[in-house]
Design a protein around this nucleic acid. Sequence first.
DNA 1: CGGCTGCTTGAATAGAGTCAATAAACGTGG
DNA 2: CCACGTTTATTGACTCTATTCAAGCAGCCG
Lengths: 205, 205
Amino acid sequence: MQRVHKATGELMIVDHGWLASCTLLPDGSRQIIQLHLPGDLIGLANVAYTEAAITLVALTDAKVCPFPRNALGKLFDVHPRLAGLFFALAVVENSALADRLVSVGRTSARARIAALLLDTGARLRVLNRSSPDNFAFPLTQEEIGDATGLTAVHVNRMIRQLEEARLIARGDGRVHLLDEPGLRKLAAFEDRYEKLSLGWLPPSR
Amino acid sequence: MQRVHKATGELMIVDHGWLASCTLLPDGSRQIIQLHLPGDLIGLANVAYTEAAITLVALTDAKVCPFPRNALGKLFDVHPRLAGLFFALAVVENSALADRLVSVGRTSARARIAALLLDTGARLRVLNRSSPDNFAFPLTQEEIGDATGLTAVHVNRMIRQLEEARLIARGDGRVHLLDEPGLRKLAAFEDRYEKLSLGWLPPSR
DNA sequence: CGGCTGCTTGAATAGAGTCAATAAACGTGG
DNA sequence: CCACGTTTATTGACTCTATTCAAGCAGCCG
C-alpha cells in the first residue's frame, strides 16, 4: 500500500478509504486536523487561500474525486441551495474543529482517545445508517497520537487502560465500543450529527 | 463592568469590545474557542444546529449587533456574492481553528501563548491598517489559559519567561511584541491573513 | 477601610514525554 | 511457502513539563 502525501489547494470528495488532513511542524511533529471518511468533502480550508494550508495523508488505500475550485463561483451564482449546503458543510466542520480543540485543550489523554473513537463511530453511523459500535479503525497508534496531541507510547498505554476498564475492545484493526455511555461520560462527548438544522436553506430552483 | 454570559443561536457582529466563544465542560473547566474582535462575525458554528453549541463571554465592555439567522436563506438566494463572502468567512474561521488546534495539540506552553499574541496582533493589523506591535490585550491570565489549554498559574510563569527573554513586554493591560521574528519562530506561527484569495467569488449583481 | 479579583511565587505532585529494548504483524521477493 | 526486513505494538525506567495546592501581594471599587 502506498501512502500518498500530497499538498493541494483543490477540493475533493472521498470515494473510498480514509484520509487525514494534517499540519507538519518545523520540529518534525505532526497534527492531524481531521479525518476524512468516504463521502467527505476535503479542502474547504484551502478555498480562501492562495497556497495550500494543509497536507493530505492517505491512511488506507483511498480514492478521491477532484472538485474544481473555480466551479464554486458559478455554483454560488446559479444554485443558491447548493451554495447553502456548501456553507453548511463549512459550518459543521467548524463545530467539529471546535470540539476537537476542546478535547485536546482541556481533557485527559484517556478522554481524547475516547472522544476520537466516539466521534468516528458517530460519523460512520451517519454514513451507514446501521449502528456500528464495532467498526474498522485503520489508524496506527502514532496516527491516533497525531490526532489527539499525544505520543504513540502514551496512546498505547491509554488504549490499554480503556480496554482494561472494559470500555472498548480491539482486534484485527477493529474497535468495539463496549460501554458507550461510559465513554461519553469520560470524553464529555456530545453528538452533534444528530442535531442538524438546515431549515434556513433556500429552496432548490 | 459587566461580563455578559450568554448562550445564543443567533449571528452577531461585534460593534466594539472583545468577546470570546467558549465551551464549558462538566468538570468546570473552560475552553475558549476563539476571540472576537470588533468587526468579527460571531456564531457561524451555530447556524447549522438547533441548539447553541457555544457560550459567548464578553471580555471587555462590548456591544454586538444581531444578524437574523433566517435572513441567510434569502441572502443566498438573492446575493450570491455576499453568500460567497459568508462562505469565505466560514472557511477562514476553519483555518484559524485548525491553527489553534495545532498550537494546542503540538506545541509547548510558551509557544501557545506566543501564538495567541501573534495571532491577535495580526488580526488587529487587518483591522487597523496600522501596524501595532504594541496593543491593548484585555485578557486575564486565566482567560489566556482557557484559550491555550493551560492553567492560569502556568500562563503566568510562561509570560514571565517570554518577558525575561525580551520577546515581549507588558504593562497597563497592553502587550508589546518586542521580537516578532523570535516569537514567530518559537510559535511556528504563520500569518494567514496575508494570503487570502477570493478571486473565485461570483461578481456582484 | 475591607473585600474582591487578578497576579506572583514556591513546593510538591502527577500526567505525559523520552529513551530504549523486545515482540508481534505485515509485506515482499525469492 | 518461507525468510527477511520493516513497520507497528508493547513494556519498563526515567525525565520533565505542566498541574495542584497554598500563601502573599497589589490594585480596584464600594
